[in-house]
């Protein structure tokens, strides 16, 4: 009997190992595909040479790879992972499978704050500096998230909290629209561009800053996976195990805010990745254990965003689509499909 159990465990461990291995292989494949594809197609042989430092620094291929495609790949991988991870966090927090980082009005809050800031500082700068955009959307996301959390204590029913999040989202949109009436055209273009979402503004600087925020956040989340697992079994139960629920809540909120705010800041509110990818991971892993889900969501989110960015660049080349166009078109059907299969399983 006990031998059977061990066998089952090791088989499971092997499957999980295979899942992670395939994620890594897919990540590399997506990176290579992204590097070689574009308005200038570059053979893999040249890519290897350029990356290993043997290329001709004066050639077009060299600067396309090193200055344009590579930072963009890094940025989409980091932010895709961040978005998916923050989706997983918010789903854990609300115990709601369809919650996403932007469903609760986080992106609308970011947009509103960005609009306020853009208009307020438009006299000072010709172009909004990256740091100001990051700061504005970060503060906006945290503010709207805090408002949602404020209601968390008051409502016991989590679905009404979701409705509150949507309403906050509408209020923020209304304020944003109001502000747009008084804004310069150039500011509006900036805002519209932001809200469509794109990795096209990628640079080594933005890739570095986002990695600097996202990677520590990732490891912090990982360090609290045990507490999150206990939390997912019920707040009362987690408390009885000695989990500091209040502290954990604040931490979850902060990390979600940091992760989704950096996405909003560097690439705009990319839709559906945060909802769909954690689901895909659950189905593939056949587990909800945070210790597995955290790295899996991150990796899967990276791959997903890299492939979607590739599609955004290539599908109607030379016209570049916004990233949300692709993620929604791919993500929404996946969510529907997952919901249907989920229902079947629970329906018994």
């Amino acid at each position: 009997m006990s031998g059977d159990k061990r066998h089952g465990n090791s088989r499971n461990a092997m499957r999980i190992g295979m899942v992670f291995l395939s994620f890594v292989i897919l990540l590399i494949a997506a990176a290579v595909w992204n590097l070689r594809s574009g308005s200038v197609s570059i053979p893999v042989r040249d890519i290897v040479r350029i990356l290993s430092g043997n290329g001709d620094p004066e050639s077009t291929a060299y600067s396309v790879i090193r200055k344009i495609r590579l930072p963009r790949i890094v940025l989409s991988a980091v932010l895709g992972g961040a978005l998916s991870l923050s989706g997983f966090l918010i789903q854990t927090f609300f115990r709601n499978p369809i919650a996403g980082p932007f469903v609760l009005g986080i992106s609308s809050g970011a947009k509103m704050f960005l609009a306020v800031t853009t208009i307020a500082v438009s006299g000072l700068f010709v172009d909004m500096p990256v740091s100001a955009t990051v700061a504005a959307s970060f503060v906006g996301s945290i503010l709207s998230l805090l408002i949602v959390i404020l209601f968390t204590g008051r409502v016991r029913n989590m679905s009404s909290l979701l409705v509150i999040g949507m309403m906050i989202s509408y209020i923020c949109s209304a304020v944003t629209d109001l502000l747009i009436n008084f804004a310069n055209d150039s500011d509006i273009i900036n805002l519209t561009h932001w809200s469509m979402g794109s990795f096209s503004a990628a640079s080594w600087q933005s890739a570095r800053i986002s990695a600097f925020i996202v990677i520590p956040a990732f490891f912090t989340v990982l360090a609290f996976s045990k507490q999150m697992e206990a939390y997912s079994l019920g707040e009362g139960y987690a408390m009885s195990l000695g989990v500091d629920i209040k502290g954990l809540r604040v931490l979850l909120v902060l990390l979600t805010g940091v992760l989704s705010a950096s996405v909003a800041a560097f690439a705009g509110p990319i839709s559906f990745v945060g909802i769909a990818v954690p689901h895909i991971c659950r189905m593939i892993l056949k587990s909800e254990k945070p210790i597995l889900m955290i790295p899996a969501s991150f990796l899967c989110g990276s791959v997903f965003c890299m492939l979607c960015d590739l599609a955004a660049r290539m599908l109607f080349s030379p016209t570049e689509l916004s990233i949300s166009t692709v993620t929604s078109a791919v993500g929404a059907p996946i969510v529907i499909w997952l919901m249907l299969t989920r229902r079947n399983r629970n329906g018994r």
Binding site: A223, S232, Y237, S240, L241, R282, K289
Partner: peptide
């Protein structure tokens, strides 16, 4: 207690092993 939360994709084994929480280390292995 009567809090009844049933995670979707957690086996009974995993669910029961949560009881080892006060004995396991940082990552709950």
């Amino acid at each position: 207690l009567t809090e009844r939360i049933r995670p979707d994709l957690m086996t009974c084994y995993e669910f029961v092993s949560a009881g080892r929480y006060p004995y396991t280390g940082r990552f709950g292995l």
